[in-house]
Design a protein around this nucleic acid. Structure first.
Lengths: 241, 241
DNA sequence: TGACGATAGATGTCTAGATATGTAATGCGA
DNA sequence: TCGCATTACATATCTAGACATCTATCGTCA
């Protein structure tokens, strides 16, 4: 029944301050499914109008932390799904690649043991080293997609030094021959890891994830396994028969 | 400067109606970057409070159609980037087949004037009546996808009585000849309207939205324009070149 | 015991208006 | 002509209150 300290002179909006307190004192303390006090009561505790409190709750709903049930109350959502999505390899697949002509920023380049899914797709034995390339692509100067590229170290380790941006596929074709894509798997997920920040979207905006495998035309040997996360508000896959 | 007709007695919220009009009259008419009239002016045109108008704009911002710039105005966002995925009919048929071995529940069947986008795809004049069929498909007893089917009333009005579930495409092919799908547009969005409830997910879980057009094999006449919303955690589109 | 209407209490929508803050254009002075 | 303060106008936030609608529960009646 205590009155929370909301400072009206910090330059930070009331609803933002309230959202933070709600997250700290309710979402983090409570368990999934717990009900928050009624809007009216919370508004009284924070000494703000109910509209302002609702605006604060809107923020947390947008982040996926709370949900409203009309006539019932405000509840803490079940966040387990988020983590299951992130760690469940079955659902952590969708990758792909697009070779659009945009700016490319290399986020990370490293050699790492191949994760199981990567090894399977690249026809490697597990833990065989792969080149892991993380790139951010911009279209019209705006973030467009983040791509995790995995390439076998054996023929492509040179990329670690040679490649610095631009069209990765052009680079590969110039040095290794023509490529073709075998198959793409598409689904939609919420951004994981740093993807939201890199793409310039909030955690609750969906991304389109495409998993794809590129192989060499001449002998079908795997060249690149890629997981692409597109900003859903900037992508529309067009599929023509 | 005209006053838009917003019906306060339809049971549909004012902001939802206004959002629809804004999308139809501004977003679809205008170009990316265009500025909308000021909030105050729009509020006056719709004869609602500015807060209500802002709520309507919030909807379109959430859909990625508009964006606000503080102190400047409300603008139409850059259009979606189209990305062409090379593929053949395999995919579209797979897509069509998804859910075939599932239960179908008809949510709504009605005749309604064609919305602009539907009329364009079905090659009808605006507001020409179409059969609007809303179905929910279940896989293993669990909600899987929601489909909005739009069919020209002329040859397909019979469906209003004849169809009661099962494979809509089987029904159509039996009565009108073979179909094929022309093109599909895929993106990810947050669930709109009742979709979240129907699919059994929360409002912040993404859905995969596929817009597709089915035409008759014999003369390419449009048969069905469909917008499918898949539960993103239950779908994975497979695209083979 | 079961059905059902009444009701309390919760969220949802809308209005009205005050005030704060950001942006861009104007216009004046050096 | 350049620089900057002013100003007009746009969005952003917050308050206050009314009424609508949904849900769960309780009590009554058959």
């Amino acid at each position: 029944m205590s009155l929370y300290a909301i400072d009206r002179d910090t330059g930070i909006t009331l609803y933002a301050q309230i959202a933070e307190v709600l997250e700290r004192d309710y979402v983090r303390q409570g368990a999934a499914g717990d009900r928050l006090p009624a809007e009216g009561e919370l508004a009284a505790r924070f000494a703000v109008n109910r509209h302002t409190l609702r605006r604060a709750v809107d923020e947390l709903i947008a982040e996926g932390l709370l949900e409203r049930r009309h006539g019932v109350g405000i509840f803490i959502t079940d966040l387990l799904l988020d983590y299951r999505v992130g760690s469940n390899t079955r659902f952590t697949q969708t990758l792909a690649d697009i070779g659009i002509s945009t700016d490319t920023r290399v986020i990370r380049k490293m050699i790492t043991p191949a994760p199981a899914g990567v090894a399977r797709n690249l026809a490697l034995t597990a833990d065989e080293p792969v080149l892991w390339l993380e790139t951010l692509r911009l279209a019209d100067g705006l973030p467009f997609c983040v791509i995790s590229h995995f390439l076998p170290v054996k023929p492509f380790g040179e990329l670690l030094d040679g490649y610095a941006g631009g069209s990765l596929h052009d680079y590969l074709e110039k040095n290794h021959g023509a490529l073709h894509r075998t198959e793409s798997l598409v689904t939609a997920v919420l951004p994981q890891g740093d993807d939201a920040k890199l793409l310039g979207i909030t955690q609750n905006r969906p991304v389109l994830r495409v998993k794809s495998l590129n192989v060499l035309d001449r002998d079908n040997s795997p060249v690149e396994y890629a997981i692409t996360r597109f900003r859903a508000d900037r992508i529309q896959l067009r599929i023509t028969p």
